[in-house]
Design a protein around this nucleic acid. Structure first.
Lengths: 189, 189
DNA sequence: GCATCATAGTCAAGAAAATGACTAGTCATA
DNA sequence: TATGACTAGTCATTTTCTTGACTATGATGC
């Protein structure tokens, strides 16, 4: 029951359709939660039934109609309650780390390739988040924005996402280099 | 079907009982995968049925008997296959980040408290991982160990865990400070 | 002129994970 | 001398997530 809170938190910024939310869960929101579109549509339906969000139909020409959702007072109260409860510890789950754990007992070739791909993907995300942060912050410098900005929540989670991706990229590149060098060394003798 | 590979990777270091594995999944292994004891016992049973691990009974006095498991050749082959397949992207899922995303629209008091608790927990994990890395490395310095060490997989994943926890701690402390200062500023006017 | 992408969803099935309760003996401690 | 913590698990239920397929329309590219 935490996806519901992620959805509520994401909707605090305004009205979104399920489709738009799904996009958000692929960029900014991805910094704190991950979900597929199907899950989001299902969760929005549940939330609406419980009165935590409300939707309104928007008729469009030359595009399918959509439903825009916003958080209700009951939804805000639910978030409030959630924020007061103890948080579960966070955890990583990453296929690539599993492969690295096993790396010196199995073929390292494919793992090195995947580490380098991952580093590239992280790099792309870093640029994206950099731009996003710039947009959110506008003209102000970071210190100033964090002190006086209206809505800093998304900025703060993007900061976390940014540092996560940077560390991830650096680690991937370093590990790839280490494994590569060991390949060479082993081929030597 | 990825927990199975995490279990196989964790078992590469030697023989473990389900109980010991559960402990490992709370420390070192937690750097790349998280699972509850019940899941591990169930997965070990499945893996044994499929011949990817084998167990042997160890009779103990003054303690319940246990079964120690090790990876079979078939298990190693399965890991090999897994390593060659494309890795799914990693993702974060963290209650606390959801709360921060919502932070300026809800009461920040409890969130600040949780951020500071989290920072302490991260600090403890950092120390633990520091010791673990020292043990794995032994006398050698890091460069040397990574070049010539026998089994560096667990070391590499612990490095990732360490940098993750450090970033996490720093972020928690910074965000807690930011939110605290905003509380004061808002109380002002 | 045909293919593919983007918008905007829905439905169903199956795999994986989380929750909670329960057994049973040992050891330390208050 | 009972209380709780540690070792070593098991069972059942529920919730959550993932996979894959399917509907429609308009716009864009080759």
């Amino acid at each position: 029951m935490a996806l519901r809170h992620a959805v509520l938190a994401a909707l605090l910024d305004g009205e979104y359709s399920g489709y738009q939310l799904a996009k958000a869960f692929d960029v900014g929101v991805a910094n704190f939660w991950h979900a597929l579109p199907q899950q989001l549509y299902a969760e929005l339906a549940r939330l609406e039934k419980e009165g935590l969000v409300a939707g309104r139909q928007v008729v469009q020409e030359s595009r399918p109609n959509k439903r825009l959702f916003h958080v209700t007072d009951a939804g805000r109260a639910e978030l409030e309650k959630f924020a007061e409860a103890a948080a579960k510890p966070s955890f990583i789950r990453d296929d690539l780390l599993v492969k690295v754990q096993a790396a010196d007992r199995i073929g390292t070739g494919p793992v090195i390739g995947q580490l380098e791909e991952r580093a590239l993907a992280a790099e792309a995300k870093i640029e994206l988040l950099g731009k996003l942060l710039g947009q959110l912050r506008g003209d102000a410098d970071e210190e100033e924005y964090l002190r006086r900005g209206e809505r800093i929540g998304p900025y703060l989670t993007c900061l976390r996402g940014l540092s996560f991706e940077q560390e991830h990229r650096d680690w991937c590149l370093r590990i790839a280099a280490v494994l590569r060098e060991r390949q060479v060394t082993r081929a030597d003798h």
